[in-house]
Amino acid sequence: MEHQQNLGQSIPLPFMKMHGLGNDFVVIDSRRTGALPDAATVAAIADRHRGVGFDQLAVILPGENADARLVFFNADGSLSAACGNATRCVARFLMDETGARALRLATDHAVLAAEDAGDRLTRVNMGAPVLDWAGIPLAEDVDTLHLPVPGDPVATGMGNPHMTFFVPDAAAVDLERFGPAHEHHPLYPQRTNIELVQVVSPDEIILRIWERGTGITLASGSCSCAAVVAAARRGLTGRRVRVNVPGGVLEIDWREDGVWMTGPTAHVFDGVWRG
Protein backbone atom coordinates (compact mmCIF):
# COMPACT_ATOMS: atom_id res chain seq x y z
CA MET A 1 0.00 0.00 0.00
CA GLU A 2 1.18 3.52 -0.73
CA HIS A 3 1.71 5.69 2.32
CA GLN A 4 2.05 9.46 2.54
CA GLN A 5 5.39 10.39 4.07
CA ASN A 6 5.42 14.04 5.07
CA LEU A 7 7.07 14.30 8.50
CA GLY A 8 10.50 15.76 7.83
CA GLN A 9 13.49 15.88 10.16
CA SER A 10 12.88 19.53 11.16
CA ILE A 11 9.38 18.96 12.61
CA PRO A 12 9.15 18.28 16.38
CA LEU A 13 7.84 14.74 16.59
CA PRO A 14 6.37 13.31 19.82
CA PHE A 15 7.09 9.62 20.30
CA MET A 16 6.92 6.77 22.80
CA LYS A 17 9.73 4.32 23.51
CA MET A 18 8.47 0.78 24.13
CA HIS A 19 9.85 -2.73 24.15
CA GLY A 20 8.76 -6.34 24.22
CA LEU A 21 11.46 -8.50 25.85
CA GLY A 22 14.13 -5.99 24.85
CA ASN A 23 12.93 -5.86 21.23
CA ASP A 24 12.63 -2.07 21.29
CA PHE A 25 10.51 0.37 19.34
CA VAL A 26 9.85 4.01 18.75
CA VAL A 27 6.09 4.47 18.40
CA ILE A 28 4.58 7.58 16.81
CA ASP A 29 0.88 8.27 17.31
CA SER A 30 -0.33 9.87 14.05
CA ARG A 31 -4.03 9.17 14.48
CA ARG A 32 -4.84 12.89 14.30
CA THR A 33 -2.64 13.76 11.33
CA GLY A 34 -2.28 10.53 9.35
CA ALA A 35 1.34 11.53 8.72
CA LEU A 36 4.37 9.27 8.38
CA PRO A 37 8.07 10.07 8.79
CA ASP A 38 10.28 9.90 5.72
CA ALA A 39 12.99 7.25 5.44
CA ALA A 40 15.78 9.67 6.36
CA THR A 41 14.01 10.65 9.58
CA VAL A 42 13.42 7.01 10.48
CA ALA A 43 17.09 6.17 9.97
CA ALA A 44 18.18 9.21 12.01
CA ILE A 45 15.92 8.29 14.94
CA ALA A 46 17.20 4.70 14.74
CA ASP A 47 20.83 5.70 15.34
CA ARG A 48 21.62 4.46 18.86
CA HIS A 49 24.47 6.96 19.30
CA ARG A 50 23.06 10.14 17.71
CA GLY A 51 19.33 9.41 17.83
CA VAL A 52 16.94 7.42 20.02
CA GLY A 53 17.63 3.90 18.82
CA PHE A 54 15.19 1.12 18.02
CA ASP A 55 14.81 -2.24 16.31
CA GLN A 56 11.65 -1.10 14.50
CA LEU A 57 9.56 2.06 14.37
CA ALA A 58 5.76 1.83 14.41
CA VAL A 59 3.30 4.53 13.41
CA ILE A 60 -0.31 4.43 14.66
CA LEU A 61 -2.77 5.70 12.05
CA PRO A 62 -6.57 5.98 12.00
CA GLY A 63 -8.14 2.59 11.34
CA GLU A 64 -10.55 1.69 8.57
CA ASN A 65 -12.69 -1.24 9.74
CA ALA A 66 -10.21 -1.63 12.62
CA ASP A 67 -9.39 0.15 15.88
CA ALA A 68 -6.16 1.53 14.38
CA ARG A 69 -3.76 0.98 11.50
CA LEU A 70 -0.05 0.26 12.04
CA VAL A 71 2.83 0.97 9.67
CA PHE A 72 6.26 -0.46 10.49
CA PHE A 73 9.75 0.65 9.51
CA ASN A 74 13.06 -1.14 9.90
CA ALA A 75 16.06 0.70 11.35
CA ASP A 76 17.42 1.40 7.85
CA GLY A 77 14.23 3.26 6.92
CA SER A 78 12.70 0.47 4.82
CA LEU A 79 9.10 -0.62 5.32
CA SER A 80 8.04 -3.90 6.93
CA ALA A 81 4.55 -5.35 6.73
CA ALA A 82 4.71 -7.03 10.13
CA CYS A 83 6.23 -6.57 13.57
CA GLY A 84 4.70 -8.79 16.22
CA ASN A 85 6.20 -7.35 19.40
CA ALA A 86 5.48 -3.78 18.28
CA THR A 87 1.90 -4.82 17.56
CA ARG A 88 1.62 -6.15 21.11
CA CYS A 89 3.12 -2.95 22.54
CA VAL A 90 0.71 -0.73 20.61
CA ALA A 91 -2.20 -2.99 21.51
CA ARG A 92 -1.35 -2.66 25.21
CA PHE A 93 -1.10 1.14 24.86
CA LEU A 94 -4.50 1.34 23.13
CA MET A 95 -6.17 -1.06 25.58
CA ASP A 96 -4.86 0.99 28.51
CA GLU A 97 -6.08 4.16 26.79
CA THR A 98 -9.59 2.89 26.02
CA GLY A 99 -10.20 0.22 28.65
CA ALA A 100 -10.89 -2.33 25.90
CA ARG A 101 -9.81 -5.94 26.41
CA ALA A 102 -9.66 -6.76 22.71
CA LEU A 103 -8.74 -4.83 19.56
CA ARG A 104 -8.40 -5.24 15.81
CA LEU A 105 -5.28 -3.67 14.30
CA ALA A 106 -4.82 -3.30 10.55
CA THR A 107 -1.35 -3.83 9.06
CA ASP A 108 -0.04 -4.21 5.52
CA HIS A 109 0.00 -7.98 6.23
CA ALA A 110 -3.51 -8.46 7.65
CA VAL A 111 -6.02 -7.21 10.21
CA LEU A 112 -4.69 -8.66 13.48
CA ALA A 113 -6.70 -9.50 16.58
CA ALA A 114 -5.14 -8.51 19.90
CA GLU A 115 -6.36 -9.19 23.43
CA ASP A 116 -5.50 -8.81 27.09
CA ALA A 117 -4.10 -12.16 28.24
CA GLY A 118 -4.15 -11.26 31.95
CA ASP A 119 -1.25 -10.50 34.31
CA ARG A 120 -0.30 -7.54 32.05
CA LEU A 121 0.46 -9.94 29.22
CA THR A 122 -0.74 -9.13 25.72
CA ARG A 123 -1.68 -11.63 23.02
CA VAL A 124 -1.88 -11.01 19.28
CA ASN A 125 -2.90 -13.23 16.39
CA MET A 126 -0.24 -12.75 13.70
CA GLY A 127 -2.42 -14.45 11.10
CA ALA A 128 -1.88 -17.59 9.08
CA PRO A 129 1.69 -18.32 8.02
CA VAL A 130 2.50 -18.16 4.33
CA LEU A 131 3.98 -21.46 3.18
CA ASP A 132 3.79 -20.98 -0.59
CA TRP A 133 7.05 -19.95 -2.28
CA ALA A 134 5.45 -17.12 -4.27
CA GLY A 135 3.69 -15.61 -1.27
CA ILE A 136 6.72 -15.52 1.05
CA PRO A 137 8.07 -14.39 -1.55
CA LEU A 138 10.93 -16.47 -2.97
CA ALA A 139 12.57 -15.91 -6.33
CA GLU A 140 11.70 -19.37 -7.68
CA ASP A 141 9.51 -22.40 -7.06
CA VAL A 142 11.33 -24.49 -4.44
CA ASP A 143 10.34 -26.70 -1.52
CA THR A 144 9.81 -24.23 1.33
CA LEU A 145 10.26 -27.00 3.91
CA HIS A 146 13.75 -27.82 2.60
CA LEU A 147 15.37 -24.89 0.86
CA PRO A 148 18.27 -25.63 -1.50
CA VAL A 149 20.60 -23.73 0.84
CA PRO A 150 23.47 -25.18 2.91
CA GLY A 151 22.11 -25.94 6.38
CA ASP A 152 18.70 -27.12 5.05
CA PRO A 153 16.62 -24.12 6.27
CA VAL A 154 12.84 -23.64 6.12
CA ALA A 155 11.14 -20.66 4.42
CA THR A 156 8.09 -19.03 6.00
CA GLY A 157 6.12 -15.83 5.47
CA MET A 158 4.66 -14.00 8.47
CA GLY A 159 3.94 -10.74 6.65
CA ASN A 160 7.70 -10.63 6.16
CA PRO A 161 10.05 -13.35 4.85
CA HIS A 162 11.96 -15.78 7.07
CA MET A 163 14.73 -18.37 6.73
CA THR A 164 14.91 -20.74 9.72
CA PHE A 165 17.93 -22.93 10.48
CA PHE A 166 17.94 -25.75 13.03
CA VAL A 167 21.25 -26.06 14.85
CA PRO A 168 22.52 -28.14 17.79
CA ASP A 169 23.80 -25.07 19.67
CA ALA A 170 22.39 -21.66 18.73
CA ALA A 171 24.91 -19.84 20.95
CA ALA A 172 27.84 -21.37 19.06
CA VAL A 173 26.96 -19.72 15.73
CA ASP A 174 28.66 -16.40 14.85
CA LEU A 175 25.42 -14.58 14.08
CA GLU A 176 27.26 -11.32 13.28
CA ARG A 177 28.65 -13.10 10.20
CA PHE A 178 25.92 -15.66 9.57
CA GLY A 179 23.04 -13.15 9.56
CA PRO A 180 24.21 -10.70 6.89
CA ALA A 181 25.60 -13.56 4.78
CA HIS A 182 22.04 -14.93 4.42
CA GLU A 183 19.86 -11.80 4.65
CA HIS A 184 20.59 -10.99 1.00
CA HIS A 185 20.33 -14.57 -0.32
CA PRO A 186 19.25 -14.54 -3.99
CA LEU A 187 16.26 -16.77 -3.17
CA TYR A 188 14.77 -13.80 -1.25
CA PRO A 189 14.13 -10.77 -3.50
CA GLN A 190 12.96 -8.70 -0.49
CA ARG A 191 15.78 -9.94 1.78
CA THR A 192 14.94 -12.13 4.77
CA ASN A 193 14.97 -12.46 8.53
CA ILE A 194 17.21 -15.23 9.86
CA GLU A 195 16.37 -17.55 12.77
CA LEU A 196 18.71 -19.98 14.49
CA VAL A 197 16.66 -22.57 16.38
CA GLN A 198 17.90 -25.02 18.99
CA VAL A 199 15.16 -27.51 19.88
CA VAL A 200 15.05 -28.21 23.62
CA SER A 201 11.93 -30.37 23.68
CA PRO A 202 8.68 -30.78 21.70
CA ASP A 203 7.30 -27.70 23.45
CA GLU A 204 10.41 -25.50 23.92
CA ILE A 205 13.07 -23.94 21.71
CA ILE A 206 15.97 -21.52 22.04
CA LEU A 207 15.99 -18.81 19.36
CA ARG A 208 18.55 -16.30 18.11
CA ILE A 209 17.50 -13.67 15.59
CA TRP A 210 18.91 -11.60 12.75
CA GLU A 211 16.32 -9.12 11.44
CA ARG A 212 16.61 -7.75 7.94
CA GLY A 213 17.41 -4.07 7.91
CA THR A 214 18.21 -4.10 11.64
CA GLY A 215 20.60 -6.88 12.68
CA ILE A 216 20.73 -8.92 15.87
CA THR A 217 17.77 -8.32 18.20
CA LEU A 218 16.92 -9.54 21.69
CA ALA A 219 13.49 -10.71 20.55
CA SER A 220 11.16 -10.69 17.55
CA GLY A 221 7.53 -11.67 17.44
CA SER A 222 7.32 -12.53 13.75
CA CYS A 223 10.62 -14.44 13.93
CA SER A 224 9.37 -16.41 16.94
CA CYS A 225 6.19 -17.27 15.05
CA ALA A 226 8.14 -18.29 11.93
CA ALA A 227 10.50 -20.44 14.01
CA VAL A 228 7.64 -22.35 15.64
CA VAL A 229 5.84 -22.83 12.32
CA ALA A 230 9.06 -24.17 10.78
CA ALA A 231 9.75 -26.48 13.74
CA ALA A 232 6.19 -27.83 13.76
CA ARG A 233 6.26 -28.43 9.99
CA ARG A 234 9.48 -30.39 10.41
CA GLY A 235 7.92 -32.47 13.20
CA LEU A 236 10.50 -31.22 15.71
CA THR A 237 7.95 -29.61 18.03
CA GLY A 238 4.23 -29.34 18.53
CA ARG A 239 2.29 -26.22 17.57
CA ARG A 240 2.31 -24.66 21.05
CA VAL A 241 5.86 -23.80 22.04
CA ARG A 242 7.77 -21.81 24.65
CA VAL A 243 10.30 -19.65 22.78
CA ASN A 244 13.39 -18.57 24.72
CA VAL A 245 14.91 -15.48 23.11
CA PRO A 246 17.82 -13.48 24.58
CA GLY A 247 15.33 -10.95 26.00
CA GLY A 248 12.99 -13.41 27.71
CA VAL A 249 10.16 -15.80 26.82
CA LEU A 250 7.30 -15.71 24.32
CA GLU A 251 4.51 -18.26 24.10
CA ILE A 252 3.62 -19.16 20.51
CA ASP A 253 0.48 -21.12 19.66
CA TRP A 254 -0.16 -22.05 16.00
CA ARG A 255 -3.94 -22.49 15.93
CA GLU A 256 -6.40 -23.03 13.10
CA ASP A 257 -7.17 -19.29 12.97
CA GLY A 258 -3.53 -18.13 12.96
CA VAL A 259 -0.33 -17.96 14.97
CA TRP A 260 -0.96 -16.45 18.41
CA MET A 261 1.85 -14.83 20.37
CA THR A 262 1.72 -13.96 24.07
CA GLY A 263 4.22 -11.99 26.14
CA PRO A 264 4.96 -8.88 28.21
CA THR A 265 5.33 -5.30 27.01
CA ALA A 266 6.85 -2.15 28.50
CA HIS A 267 6.25 1.58 27.92
CA VAL A 268 9.65 3.03 28.81
CA PHE A 269 9.37 6.78 28.25
CA ASP A 270 7.88 9.56 26.10
CA GLY A 271 9.94 12.10 24.21
CA VAL A 272 10.04 14.59 21.33
CA TRP A 273 12.32 14.15 18.32
CA ARG A 274 13.60 17.49 17.04
CA GLY A 275 15.97 16.31 14.30
Results as ranks from 00 to 15, higher is better:
Leu79Tyr: 01
Leu79Pro: 01
Leu79Gly: 01
Leu79Gln: 06
Ala81Ile: 02
Ala81Phe: 03
Cys83Val: 09
Cys83Gly: 03
Cys83Leu: 05
Cys83Glu: 07
Cys83Asp: 03
Gly84Trp: 05
Gly84Ser: 01
Ala86Gly: 14
Ala86Tyr: 08
Ala86Trp: 06
Thr87His: 03
Thr87Pro: 02
Thr87Arg: 03
Thr87Gln: 01
Arg88Tyr: 00
Arg88Ala: 10
Cys89Trp: 07
Cys89Asp: 12
Cys89Met: 11
Cys89Ala: 10
Cys89Ile: 13
Cys89Thr: 10
Arg92Glu: 12
Arg92Gln: 14
Arg92Asp: 13
Arg92Met: 09
Arg92Asn: 12
Phe93Ser: 05
Phe93Lys: 13
Phe93Gly: 00
Phe93Leu: 13
Leu94Glu: 02
Met95Ser: 03
Met95His: 06
Asp96Trp: 13
Asp96Val: 03
Asp96Gly: 00
Glu97Asn: 08
Glu97Thr: 13
Glu97Ala: 14
Glu97Asp: 15
Thr98Val: 09
Gly99His: 05
Gly99Phe: 00
Gly99Ala: 02
Gly99Met: 04
Gly99Asp: 00
Gly99Trp: 02
Ala100Leu: 12
Ala100Gly: 09
Ala100Thr: 03
Arg101Gln: 15
Arg101Asn: 07
Arg101Phe: 11
Arg101His: 11
Ala102Gln: 15
Ala102His: 12
Ala102Lys: 14
Ala102Thr: 12
Leu103Asp: 07
Leu103Pro: 02
Leu103Lys: 05
Leu103Gln: 02
Arg104Ser: 15
Arg104Ala: 13
Leu105Cys: 10
Leu105Asp: 04
Ala106Pro: 00
Ala106Gln: 04
Ala106Phe: 00
Ala106Ile: 01
Thr107Lys: 06
Asp108Met: 03
Asp108Thr: 01
Asp108His: 04
His109Asn: 04
Ala110Phe: 08
Ala110Arg: 14
Val111Trp: 08
Leu112Pro: 06
Ala113Glu: 14
Ala113Thr: 15
Ala114Pro: 11
Ala114His: 10
Ala114Leu: 12
Ala114Asp: 08
